[in-house]
Amino acid sequence: MDNTVVSTGTEGKTWGGGNKPLKASYGKMMMWFFIVSDALTFSGFLAAYGFSRFKFIDSWPIADEVFTHVPFFHGNYPMIYVAFMTFVLIMSSVTMVLAVDAGHKMDKAKVTIYMFLTIIGGLIFVGSQAWEWATFIKGDYGAVQTKGGNILQFVDNEGHRVALRDFAVIDEHKERVQDQRKSGIWFTSEGTLPTYTVSEVLHGLEANENILVRTQIINEEGHKTVLSREESINQIKNNGKVVVEGANLHANEYGSPLFADFFFFITGFHGFHVFSGVVINIIIFFNVILGTYERRKNYEMVEKVGLYWHFVDLVWVFVFTFFYLV
């Protein structure tokens, strides 16, 4: 009875099942599917960032002036810390690929060590990114936002940035307090008030002859435009609306609100990928220790997780370029 014999008629054919099309296992193929779609997601974000940046090409913040801090060091060090972060991530990619290589050789001890180092690298990176965020949110110099939503920063005669705390004249009798539900109308409240009011900044500006206002507009030499003394006072007096310190989703002291929005969104989304990568790596790490893959007689799972981890590194290379370099 030929008819009852289980036969799909696809034996020996590439796409018939029980086979590895393109010589990649099902799991690896699906990981590549995921990576391509995730790469498109990130490209969408970065292209949207490019869109907004081209839209405000003459007033976008200059990254070198925004990301200048290094933990435990005072002073102006553009790029240094983020270069360190990039190196940490590339390094953890290297330990990951070494773990995969050790897996091919069925060397459990080495896979364990390299997986461990990869996890440490990932944690250092996520920690660094948290610190970057905290520094970015806290801000440094402070600025004044105009009625039109533009940011006015302060510089001295030589063009060095000046912080509000260095020149604002504190008004001892300021009456304005934070509006809270308990003290005002029950349904109204507001966020924390800035340290200084616009009038305090204005008084400070009038009292210090050497302080000028710097606008968002980038001039032909690629620097932000600095206004004359007279214009500076006029701008703050007539257009100054609120004092901005640090960054949130509505306003930031660095320039266009979109800059901070995209920074939070893209580095946040990437940071979340790193975080989930670390969690997955930890799971695999324990599986390695428990000997799951030793019993399975192959370490392909390490390879698949490795693909994801390298992808996170790959995305960071682009984020690094478009947020910090270009």
């Binding site: 393109l22 590549w32 995969v100 390298h310 590194d313 790959l314 682009f318």
Partner: peptide, 19 residues
């Protein structure tokens, strides 16, 4: 950089041409 990460770390160099 992206090329070398994909080709050598993600082993694209060792996959089939069609993949």
């Amino acid at each position: 950089k992206a090329y070398y990460i994909t080709w050598d770390f993600m082993h694209m160099r060792d996959e089939t041409k069609s993949l």
